[in-house]
Nucleic acid binder design. Structure first.
Lengths: 105, 105
DNA sequence: TTGATATTTCGACAAATGTCGAACAATGCG
DNA sequence: CGCATTGTTCGACATTTGTCGAAATATCAA
């Protein structure tokens, strides 16, 4: 993976987080994930559970979730009626590596 | 600062990093900063030094730098002809806190 | 002063984005 | 089956964004 490709991928992730509603969605999912990690079980965050305070329609939510997924920030999978979302840990590590070079600060 | 305000600020930062050219600018600055930290002196990254491989005009660069500054990601100050840029360390800590909750991973 | 360097401001404009409503699809329940 | 849940697809549309060229500004040097 060339640096140029990396940059493009990273920019896409940041762009995905650069919308207030999408960021809220993502933060909700992050918090859910931590909750579930604490409980020692895998997280089952279906969509409507993540809509805390978001005042946007269902089509828009669907669009945003897809955008987060396309950016590689989250993984999704169907389970019956529901769409299960989870944070992509690999990608989180990548973002951290960029923002915390050397872990100083 | 309400959580809503925080979210708005964060989204703005991410949006600023969500453009390829702006991200490149920022990464260049990050790297310069580290170099200078290693050398034990303050960094003097004037603009044209940060343009590595960026194929955009001066007006666009100026626009992008302002956007990064407005988002709070970088600080700028004039020094004669040149514009000195530096990463805002406080804000970096904030971003890391969001992406590395509990530092697990 | 004349001129070079570094950056900004100003309009303009095509392209991308965020959102919507209406309709559609898939699943599960009684 | 008929119907409610959960999410998606499809246009549409106003707003925002990224970029440009031309002109302006500021600083320094000869």
């Amino acid at each position: 993976m060339s640096p140029k490709t990396d940059l493009r991928r990273l920019a896409r992730m940041f762009k995905a987080l650069g919308n207030e509603n999408r960021l809220q969605l993502f933060v909700n999912l992050l918090e859910e994930s931590q909750l579930d990690l604490a409980k020692g079980r895998t997280h089952d965050c279906f969509l409507t559970k993540l809509l805390g305070g978001l005042d946007i329609g269902a089509p828009t939510v669907s669009h945003h979730v897809k955008e987060l997924a396309d950016a590689g920030l989250i993984d999704t999978q169907r389970d019956g009626k529901q769409l299960i979302c989870s944070v992509n840990p690999e990608v989180m590590r990548e973002l951290r590596a960029l923002l915390a070079p050397g872990d100083q600060g």
